[in-house]
């Protein structure tokens, strides 16, 4: 028997409207689930992006012992490159360091008369795996001729924490909310099957297959899930834009780089739709599983 899409779909949608309030609740809970899931995932994603930026910029600065002569200083290059996890090692003389420093504060004359001696020769070390910064720092400290080493971990640790918390919270919330969504959708559909029990009995009596009876309820669940996904997507868009502009206008947070929604709407839409469909179909299948036993 061919799949009578038009009929199943029409029945499914009219089922949805026959329980306006329950359908509304089912869509609402799906929207809430997707929105919370989406928000936490996007926070985790942005924290990760900022972390990657930071790690890309994050270099270890190894300051050279003042007592070494120029040759010995040059010789350190090779030695540092042999240290584990060091991917790149660039020498910066005290003159260059001063120049860089002044450039950074170019509209401020305050530092322009600083003496070269304030600055030291240094090596800027980039790592293959920035996550191993602490271990690499210790190894570099052990190299003869390196006076001291600076590695900023505080900020990067902050991002790691945000990302980890956002990931854990979103996974836990997603699990709980998905279960609630499936449950509510399932109950909405159970109501419809209850409403339609006479019709279902007659359809079975005249020889309808279980599949035929099931399809309208599957479409009902599907439509609930898709409606939830579409609404959640637009709300997520609004929320994300609001947060983005909030961060851009804030004095303290504007250093954060927020990925623009334009760049991520496709995966967000696809994931919302997939989750919506899974929740909807999952809900309808749990609702009608028992129901079809004769």
């Amino acid at each position: 028997m061919k799949h009578n899409f038009q009929y199943f779909f029409k029945e499914g949608v009219s089922n949805m409207f026959s329980h306006g309030f329950m359908s509304f609740a089912a869509i609402g809970i799906t929207v809430a689930c997707l929105l919370i899931m989406g928000t936490f995932s996007l926070v985790a994603y942005n924290a990760n992006e900022n972390l990657a930026d930071l790690q890309r910029e994050n270099a270890i600065l190894a300051f050279v012992d003042e007592n070494l002569d120029d040759n010995a200083v040059k010789g350190l290059q090779q030695e540092l490159e042999c240290v584990e996890n060091v991917s790149e090692c660039t020498f910066i003389s005290r003159e260059e360091a001063k120049k860089d420093y002044l450039e950074q504060y170019d509209d401020n004359d305050l530092y322009s008369n600083l003496d070269d001696d304030v600055f030291r020769h240094r090596y800027v070390i980039h790592m293959t795996d920035p996550g191993q910064m602490l271990a690499t720092k210790e190894l570099v400290e052990g190299v003869d001729g390196i006076a001291w080493v600076r590695a900023d971990e505080a900020i990067s640790n902050g991002f790691v924490t945000v990302r980890n918390i956002a990931s854990v919270v979103s996974i836990a919330l997603i699990a709980i909310l998905l279960i609630i969504s499936v449950f509510i959708i399932s109950n909405t559909i159970k109501l419809t099957t209850f409403d339609r029990r006479e019709e279902i009995a007659i359809m079975k009596m005249v020889g309808a297959t279980d599949g035929f009876i099931r399809w309208p309820f599957v479409y009902e669940g599907l439509m609930l899930g898709i409606c939830g996904a579409v609404i959640a997507f637009f709300l997520q868009w609004l929320l994300y834009s609001a947060i983005t502009s909030g961060i851009a206008n804030s004095d303290t947070l504007q250093l954060l780089r927020v990925v623009p929604f334009d760049g991520i709407w496709v995966p967000v839409a696809v994931i919302f739709l997939i989750v919506g469909i899974l929740v909807g179909v999952g809900g309808s299948l749990t609702a009608i599983r028992k129901f079809l036993r004769v």
Partner: peptide, 8 residues
């Protein structure tokens, strides 16, 4: 119609 549709 319900009875007829039910069998395709």
């Amino acid at each position: 119609a319900l009875a007829m549709r039910a069998v395709g």
